[in-house]
Simulated assay, not measured.
Amino acid sequence: MLQAEIKSLFKEDISILIKIPNSSKHYLCDCGEASLLTVKEVQSVSAVFISHTHIDHFSNFDGIFRHQIGSGEKVVICGPKNIHQQIESRLKSYTWNLIDENTIEYEIREIVSEEEINIYKIRPPLWNLELIKTQDFLFEDEYVNVDFAILDHKTHSIAYLFKEKDSVSFNENGSEFKKGKWISELKSAFEKNEEGKQIEIEGIVYEASELFHLLTRNEGYKLGVIMDHAAEEGNYEKIKTVFGNADMVYIETFYKDEDREFAIMNHHSFASASGKIMKECKVKEAVPVHFSRRYTESDRLEIETAFYKAFRED
């Protein structure tokens, strides 16, 4: 199951680390201050997901790549329109005369629209952007698929949904056969929908479809991160489309209900609004995050109380 950890302390700018169980691979959502983020964790980040480039979500990007330089790895960076130009500018603002081109490679995925993702490559020491291709999906690796929604925050703000790959389990109690390599062959046939594939068990050949009843598909865990967005219906329709029935969602809850006028003015959400949309999405668990620095700890408790009341009330 995917695990998320908030790496920012209260009154620090937001940064959330997503970990894959039994793997050293991590994903990082936003690059605000992150006092709890270790160098080892940064060096294990294989992909960075930027919601938008307001300073409180992007200011620590330099600190992140500071600890990635020298890894020799390719790191994927996903973000809103023009993210490639902003990263290029950040990288070119430093002197790199002691760094060679094999030190690191960034693959930048610019989200232009729901169907248009531009892929760029950028490497030291010159950090010149190279457009590689355009594709219609954002991110997939051996562990997750990542879907997204483009929300309005008076700029594009990308909300991300990480969906763990489905797994297939073998019903040992429902089988009269001895265990063997045939189980992995059957799982492979099931995943590839190869109903006619021949599976030999104890000297007898079966078609895979005859044995599919011994398997169960387990839907992957769905974890969402929704950052800054205006509390308005257009955003909510997009959120419901992507995040419906998610297992866990971390959602921006910048203002108290009594300060909703500031929320409207600054295109942010507020406590009960964030809780209500999570309820409408029928998510299993939801966590309010990213509060205004104006608030005290008691204000934070007030926000959380209003959020969970809206999220859980019948």
Rank of each mutant, 00 (worst) to 15 (best):
F162V: 08
G203Y: 12
V242R: 01
D141A: 07
K133A: 13
D314W: 03
E285D: 10
H268L: 07
E41I: 12
I108Y: 10
G63T: 03
Q86H: 05
I16P: 06
I99A: 09
V168T: 15
H54K: 15
K181M: 09
L129E: 10
N102W: 04
S89M: 11
I64F: 13
L223S: 03
E237L: 14
S23M: 04
N97W: 07
S272M: 06
N102G: 15
K178Q: 13
A286K: 05
D13K: 12
L9V: 03
G174K: 14
H267E: 10
Q198W: 03
I183F: 05
A34G: 13
L9D: 14
E101D: 13
W127H: 05
S15V: 05
F58K: 02
T253F: 00
I18G: 02
L36A: 07
K309P: 01
G174R: 07
A149L: 06
L301W: 07
K282F: 02
L36C: 03
E33I: 13
S292Q: 06
I122V: 14
I132W: 02
L98E: 11
E116F: 04
F177A: 07
P288K: 02
E258W: 00
A4F: 13
D259V: 00
V48W: 02
I251N: 08
D247V: 09
V75E: 07
V48I: 15
D314Y: 05
N173V: 01
S269D: 00
V112S: 10
Y106I: 06
S51D: 06
D314I: 11
I117C: 12
Q3W: 04
L37F: 10
H84R: 13
V42F: 04
F212T: 05
G79Y: 02
S71T: 15
N171R: 12
E202M: 09
V42N: 12
S113Y: 05
F291I: 00
N193V: 06
F190G: 09
F190E: 03
E194D: 14
L2F: 12
F170I: 12
F212I: 09
H84I: 01
E185L: 12
G196N: 15
T216V: 11
A263I: 01
Y236L: 01
Q86L: 15
I251Q: 08
I6P: 01
T134W: 02
V48F: 02
V205H: 06
A306F: 01
L17I: 09
A310F: 01
I83L: 11
K25C: 01
I199K: 12
F162D: 09
Y221K: 14
S209A: 09
A273W: 04
H229S: 13
F49S: 08
Q86E: 15
L28R: 04
I277V: 15
E210L: 01
G63E: 14
L37G: 08
S274D: 05
K165S: 09
K282R: 15
M278R: 02
L9E: 14
M278Q: 08
N218L: 06
V76W: 03
A189S: 15
N173H: 06
L186P: 08
G180A: 08
K11C: 07
I239D: 03
